[in-house]
Design a protein around this nucleic acid. Sequence first.
RNA 1: GCCCCCAUCGUCUAGUGGCUAGGACACCGCUCUUUCAAGGCGGAAACACCGGUUCGACUCCGGUUGGGGGCGCCA
Length: 466
Amino acid sequence: MVVTRFAPSPTGKLHLGGARTALFNFLFARKNKGKFILRIEDTDKERSKKEFEEDIKNSLLWLNIEFDSFFRQSERIETYKELIKKLQSEGKVYKCFCTKEELEAQKLEQISQGIAPRYSGRCSKLTKEEISFFERTRSYVFRIKVEPQKLEINDLIKGKVIFDTLLIGDFIIAKSEEEPLFNFATPVDDALMGISHVIRGEDHLSNTPKQIIVLKSLNMPIPQYAHLPMILSKDYSKLSKRHGATSISELKEEGFLPEAIINFILLLGWHESSDREIYSLNEAIEAFSLERIQKKPAVFNEKKLIWFNRYYLLRKSPSEILSLTYKDFKEKYNFQDESYILKIINLAKERASTLKELIENSFYFFEEPDYKPELLIWNKAPSTAIKEFLEKTLNVLEGIEEKEFNPEKIKLELSKLSPNDLGLVFWPFRVALTGLEASPGPFEIASILGKERTIQRVKKAIEKLS
RNA sequence: GCCCCCAUCGUCUAGUGGCUAGGACACCGCUCUUUCAAGGCGGAAACACCGGUUCGACUCCGGUUGGGGGCGCCA
């Protein structure tokens, strides 16, 4: 039975890297008809925040990455406590009374000697008398005894990796009975929850031997490990807030679609042998395999994310987009005629990269555009000529009956004004309606705006040139 | 400093001893066209370096260089 988990600490919003880890765990579980668990690793009371837990959950669900069960480590303290006690009674874990200052000095000393910093094991050799004395005078933490050995890990992505536990030393598994640390709580939960495959970021590779040591001390089963390469920013540094919106909730705000994000992160470090690039979630489940995961870090390329977003946006029906944007349209423009918005969407979706852009770029459907008179000038034509053509345009528009005020009719009639240089009529007309250098075609816009407002805007343009 | 991982166009990647080194994004042309998109067509663009192994290396081995990750009473 395949059981995977995504185990974030709620110390920040869900980022692209985390989302990809969650996705891969989810895909692998679904592909193998197994289970996928979300486990919040909130043992660090200072840094963990409920709001981040919410953000992670909501983001996952928004992406359609559904988990089968949910756990919170802060609710499992008793379990860890018992296990610490058990290990202590077996002599595998001991109390360490060294102060932070002592430890720091030791570490600096070791680094200056060019050796890997590690704990000396001093407190493991304390006598009963010394222990009881220190218990009354000092605070302590729990360390686990680490036998020197070459620990071999068969990582499903990296292959065989060997660690020398001599370089690790006795490490701390808990700050107190009630405060287990990551490298203890994580492997314990993995074992207790029947996790078969631990799929996580490469930053955890060096934690793996420690976690295996814990598991071995506890006689608990060791899962398979698969360490994903990191996702880097364009400057090859670790992905962070500095590099723009990389949290899922921010991307959502920016108007990205979940299917675009899924498709994008899927291809960040994973690829089939084919040239295929477009995957729905279900198709991804079908195609996914750990073997095809890349070993080297991938650089996050926002342009491609935008491309995917446009791809999926282009393929959505206007009514689907309406349901995704209606609320925002309504709020931004204080307007709620669905059929009107639907027409706008139909026209604007081809030009927008994101939902947000679609909404913002459609402002001229809701308010009078403001622009410089010079923008009306087409191809260096004299402004008197432009004005003349705008007046002719006005005339033609007024002559079209309300019920015939559609793109085809408007275009047909206006084309007659300057058949040899259509831009002379079309360009100023379009600017009059939008105030923009670039926009959808004027006929569609006019027809959505309606005869009255169209005429009004053309009149205003004429005024600008007077 | 020490440990671990990695290395094909700018980016994401295909490639598992013999290929004109393929695709996608981005970029640049052309086309369409009132503008901008979208579409169509085309272009430029990569095997980090040095040694081996081999009839033959992008592919295998070693080293160099470069990049990434880790070395917490964080996760």
